[in-house]
Every structure is written in structure tokens, then in C-alpha cells.
Amino acid sequence: MRVLEDGSRTGHRLAIAESVLAPHTQGPPQHRHARHDEGFYVLSGTVRFTVGDEDYDAGTGTLVMVPPGTPHTFANPTDQPAVMLSTFTPDLYVQYFRDLQEVLASGRPLRAQADIDTMSHYATEPATDLT
């Protein structure tokens, strides 16, 4: 993931990141954001979004918007990489990805509970009622 705008130039109203999902990449556990909208624009490939209990395959040029409180996740189930732009309004959640990067850069494994704990710092929780 590459952070293109961290909110520092938008008065913290908007952050934007680019993500490359390798083939057969599972996404995060299904979760809800309490305080921000999240948008995904698929630049190339296909990304499978799960919203609640429904799956949607989004191809190149598809925009997916997730309002606060909506359970969601995403994955790349295909044999090709997928690239997408993500927006965070306001910018709160972009720090979550920096925290994950620190864990990975340190060589520590990313454990599911540690990921959930990190999400909780940014008004996000697992959608446990759907698992």
C-alpha cells in the first residue's frame, strides 16, 4: 500500500491510498468503521467485495463506497494482481495502515488479534455477527 494523501493537505477530511492485491490475497476480516466512509476504485484486475453476506466482483473502473457501520471486506480471488485506490473520509483510518507497516517492517508476524486490536484504535471493529 502506498499512501498518496495522508490528510495533512486536506484538513484531515480525506486520505487516499493505492493498494496492490496479489493473486489469491485474502483481505482483512469483515469489519465496520464507526467514524469514516471508505471508498474503493478498481484501477485494474478484479476485487471481490463482501458487504454483509453478499459477494460482489468489481472489475476495472468500478467504484465501491462503504458508509460508516456497513460490514465489509475485500479479497483478490483471481490469478492476476488487482490495483485499487482507497479513500478515507475523514482521514482517520490511514494511520491503521502505517501501524500495520511498522509491524511488518519489524519482522513480527501479523496476528489476527493484533490486527483487530489495531483496528480498534481507529473506530473500527470486526463484524462478528456475520462470522
Results as ranks from 00 to 15, higher is better:
M1G: 14
M1V: 15
E5V: 06
E5M: 04
E5K: 01
E5N: 05
G7Q: 07
G7D: 02
R9H: 13
G11A: 13
H12S: 12
H12C: 08
I16K: 00
A22F: 01
P23D: 05
T25L: 15
Q26R: 13
G27T: 07
Q30T: 12
R32Y: 03
R32M: 09
H33G: 06
R35G: 06
Y41E: 13
L43T: 04
L43F: 09
S44I: 05
S44V: 06
G45I: 03
T46C: 04
T46A: 05
R48M: 15
F49D: 02
V51F: 14
Y56F: 08
D57G: 01
G59R: 04
G59Q: 08
T62N: 02
M65Y: 06
V66M: 05
V66P: 00
V66S: 03
V66T: 00
P68N: 12
T70V: 13
T73I: 06
T73R: 02
F74W: 14
A75S: 15
A75R: 10
A75D: 11
N76F: 07
N76L: 10
Q80L: 10
M84Q: 07
M84P: 03
M84K: 05
T87N: 01
T87M: 10
F88P: 03
T89F: 04
F97S: 01
Q101V: 02
E102N: 09
V103C: 10
A105W: 07
S106F: 07
R108F: 05
P109T: 14
A112W: 02
A112F: 01
Q113F: 09
A114H: 07
I116E: 14
I116Y: 11
D117H: 10
P126G: 08
P126L: 10
D129H: 03
L130P: 14
